[in-house]
Design a protein around this nucleic acid. Sequence first.
DNA 1: GTCAATAGTTTTGTATACAAGAATTACAGG
DNA 2: CCTGTAATTCTTGTATACAAAACTATTGAC
Lengths: 218, 218
Amino acid sequence: MEQRHADRIAEQLEELVFDGTFSDGDRLDEVRLSEQFGVSRTPLREAIQRLAQSGLVELIPRRGAFVRQPGPVELIEMFEVMAELEAACGRLAAMRISETALEALRQANTLCQQAVEAGDTDSYYAENERFHKIIYRSSGNAFLEQEATKLHKRLKPFRRVQLRFRGRMGQSMAEHEAIVAALAAADAEAAAAALRTHVAVQGEKFHNLMASLRSAAE
Amino acid sequence: MEQRHADRIAEQLEELVFDGTFSDGDRLDEVRLSEQFGVSRTPLREAIQRLAQSGLVELIPRRGAFVRQPGPVELIEMFEVMAELEAACGRLAAMRISETALEALRQANTLCQQAVEAGDTDSYYAENERFHKIIYRSSGNAFLEQEATKLHKRLKPFRRVQLRFRGRMGQSMAEHEAIVAALAAADAEAAAAALRTHVAVQGEKFHNLMASLRSAAE
DNA sequence: GTCAATAGTTTTGTATACAAGAATTACAGG
DNA sequence: CCTGTAATTCTTGTATACAAAACTATTGAC
């Protein structure tokens, strides 16, 4: 069955918001966007409703739909929630993970390590994402997996900045090893703590970068 | 500024799904609903897009919008996530809560106790909700507060069933006391554990009721 | 030069029309 | 009576039209 225009456009608009093509406060011009997507305003408006529901745009009645990129405070808060969700995944996974999944985690880590040594940032990120997705899945809670995946996707554009800090990939590898060890030992609290710290460090690096950029701008 | 039809209808449809007026699998008939709401199909369809984005309905292209009420497994998963979110709120609140908020928690608990003694279920629930909302707020993380509030609202229709179990309100009161004590002591781990257990018990009672209803139906 | 009022333009919200796909109903044949 | 096919009806998805609100530009008065 062919996908509805509204669904396709909602996906594409979401990507444009995520990748920064639309900046905070940009107004989504219905006429121009419907021309750009080659459709009438109806499916475009339905797509915009989707984004409004997700909080990516804010609808102001009779004035327009305005893009909402999270500010620094909100981003810190989102990383904080991401840390808690990953900790929850870790806690549950420690009790529920299979040997197959544990082995897949080790494999993803090995590939991460190889990417670090090769200086291959894209491979590093791909395997890193696979690592986390396995943990989400291993929580055995589809709803939690869905929530974690959704927030992980939202934060993806902001996550790469941590690589600007010297030695972060190596540090991340060590944190990954600690996570796998805790999961292998079925240590729920250790797994939760390791994941919480791992993700909280990402948020912290981001915060530090924002602070340093702000200092440089002054 | 007058609210848009689409926004008003989305809110009302959401309530109808939450309170069970629409059952799982019901198809939302666009023509009938637009007549019922006294509008054209356009704002009704825009409202349905909102619900589809929230997962309350599933859109099947060219076939319709079907209501999705969570099944027992998904409910258990949602309660599990609620427990983790509340634990996260508790952990952060233990470090961030104000004396004013602590006092408000104690007051809400006192009113809960009075409601228990009076057998006043509605007051009990109102104060119980106030208790939890204070903790969400005291986490000092607006994004976490928003996520916890959203899930709390989604699970509200299923939460009352736990009262069917003998002594649950009294037990809940004791759990509330433990939560307040942990927050007052700024004990992050104790607050998190107490809240996690408190909410997990709700999910467990619900699960037990479903099981007993199933046994009675056989 | 500034401010207010008015006129014109643009944009949004909703109603309606129409086409296509899905579902239902009716009819015919075995 | 059952099954298959065709016709009809219903529902959804999208296009377009129109009205109202918001925004912008222009003009006149002080």
